[in-house]
Design a binder for these strands. Structure first.
Lengths: 347, 347
DNA sequence: TCCCTCTGAGAAAACCTTTTCCCAAATCGC
DNA sequence: GCGATTTGGGAAAAGGTTTTCTCAGAGGGA
């Protein structure tokens, strides 16, 4: 019904609607926007005419007038990454209801390219920019500090005085280690990534804190690569020479899911049962990995989509003129329990 | 140098440049665009003024006038997918040099959401749309057939009469199987995904063709899920009851990298050597999986970034008014050789 | 001197919508 | 019946740029 959907070669304008309804463009505009005063009957006639002709206002013209384009730019250097994707999805989700579209710009680590994209976005009068990346402790290769439009940082290192949303890595680590404690694990090891990552230290510290709080022995975290291979090697270090398994860990908290997968595979190869002999928890909750491990991997989820949503809403609020306190907001992680961490003693 | 980069609260307009240079806006416009006639000295003075004030033309105003917005929409239903991402990257790469920005719209499988996004894009006067997805044999949940702007399909099922770019799955399968043949493999198996996927049949047929051409025995492809677990199970079926390994395969061509990973793990658990006893080749070349298998996995790459580039360039050409033949273009895959497929007999 | 052609630059329309101001007619109070 | 208010709707400016048209003056040829 409605919309004679003839493949109109050129979009119908307000002027045409007005002519068809026998009124001026001013009246037509007001009728469609619920502004101005006119007979209800006139308003209805104009509405029907617009509907019949399939009129849709030209967003470009509106933007020009309102100085508001209902577009935002999303800048990332994480092309293939699994971090920025859920985040983007959250951003988009928060914005679509406000009629805001998202320009996606991947800038790799190329300053020139980043500059190019930012200028293109400014020229197109985006209402704001969300900057995101693949690491919480690295800048994008471009300066967004004095841009005269609002900028929100998400999952990337912000400029000083800016507003940023990041995951609470320490909190996430606490979730994992405390879960082990609740399960009665006594010797909990931590195998994680390289020292060059800030999150490695944040999580390691939380790991130590929780163990101390519970009066458990703290063994130094094992730092390595973010890879399965390192998880494998770490098991050799943790369980290697021990005759029997006297002092060996009964739980391993891993810095990401790939390490966890390596750990689980290596444990199985040694005939050590997961989760009965040793519990394992990963980080990132990368579904496709977590569900492919045997048994399926319990993992800390950074709630990146939620983080993206928050960032989107914050930007929207800023664009709407509401001021906001600068600073870094840490959003909580959540523990997704599958089967690799073990069941409670009584369960 | 240049650009007194005061954090100007409002962008500088052509009118201000003109005033500062003591000319009319018309002259200023012509000076900056290399149009019209004027003294070289006048032109230069205007250029310098614009530079000094940091003038950048308002893209919205330009678009309104030119009826060309230098934006395109990228529609996908593959939020987290590893398919659409490289593809997007290729699209963006092809367009950025033309000053074209990309609206990314993820529509999941939600018709209402898709409709919403398409209308938002049309309202914003995108110059064209690229539709992509996670499957070559499925439509997006929205009709893009009569849109009065150009549409290109990439890695998704096109409407009839449209222009589409897809990977040549049969060709990709040939690459893999022929490689096995060159390595002297004689009993090549095929473990792949569910029958509901068109690519499963395309690849299986190519698999059969190549074996027949080489006079090798064809065993029926094993259809299952796209998962590691299925790769595991398939090995049981292929190598299971055989005492010794008389009739067992000496090579397995897998429908994706996860299946291949399952196959390799299962073979190792049985003490069967890869690649010496059995060669394995995967599909998709999902780097993070392919490089984590032991040994690293040889795999067929669909060249999705290149595919995205082609799609972007084709759209650009269409937007530029050049007509193009409708139809489906298949772009070649390439075989990425790592260590799982084996070395040539003489090597 | 007269007519013609360049040269250099400005005025104004166009793109499409929104909003402010304005005005004529109708209604109301008395 | 007269002034004051309300009602219904239009004219015009604004947003920033591009492009077409116009025009004054300068120079050239006869």
């Amino acid at each position: 019904m409605s919309s004679d959907a003839s493949p109109a070669q050129t979009p119908v304008t307000l002027r045409e609607v007005a002519a068809a309804a026998g009124v001026s463009v001013a009246t037509a505009s007001k009728a469609l926007n619920g502004q101005g005063r006119m007979k209800a009957q006139t308003r209805e006639r104009i509405r029907e005419t617009a509907q019949r002709l399939g009129f849709r206002p030209n967003s470009l013209a509106q933007s020009l007038l309102r100085r508001r384009s209902f577009t935002v730019g999303l800048l990332t250097n994480d092309t293939y990454g699994r971090f920025s994707l859920p985040l983007m999805s959250g951003v988009s989700d928060a914005l679509v209801d406000a009629g805001v579209s998202v320009f996606l710009c991947n800038v790799e680590d190329d300053t020139r390219l980043a500059q190019l994209h930012v200028e293109a976005m400014l020229d197109k009068r985006v209402d704001g920019i969300i900057a995101t990346g693949k690491r919480i402790d690295r800048h994008l290769p471009v300066d967004l500090a004095n841009l005269r439009i609002p900028v929100i940082y998400a999952f990337t290192q912000p400029d000083p005085g800016a507003i940023a949303f990041v995951s609470d890595d320490a909190g996430g680590a606490r979730l994992a280690v405390e879960h082990f404690c609740r399960l009665g694990k006594k010797r909990i090891a931590h195998v994680t990534g390289p020292a060059s990552f800030a999150v490695v230290h944040a999580r390691a510290e939380a790991y130590r804190d929780v163990l101390t709080e519970h009066g458990l022995p703290v063994s130094e975290p094992l730092l390595g690569a973010w890879s399965e291979a390192w998880g494998h090697d770490a098991v050799a270090k943790l369980f290697g020479d021990k005759a029997g398994r006297e002092g060996a860990p009964d739980a391993v908290f891993c810095g990401n899911d790939q390490i966890a997968r390596g750990v689980i595979d290596a444990l199985r190869e040694r005939g050590i049962g997961v989760p009965d002999d040793v519990g394992v928890i990963g980080f990132d909750n990368w579904q496709i990995v977590a569900e492919a491990t045997r048994p399926p991997l319990s993992s800390v989820d950074m709630n990146l989509a939620a983080l993206g949503r928050e960032a989107g809403l914050a930007l929207l609020s800023l664009v709407g003129g509401k001021p906001a306190e600068p600073g870094i907001r840490k959003l909580p992680c959540r523990l997704v329990v599958r089967q690799s961490c073990g069941r409670p003693p009584g369960g």
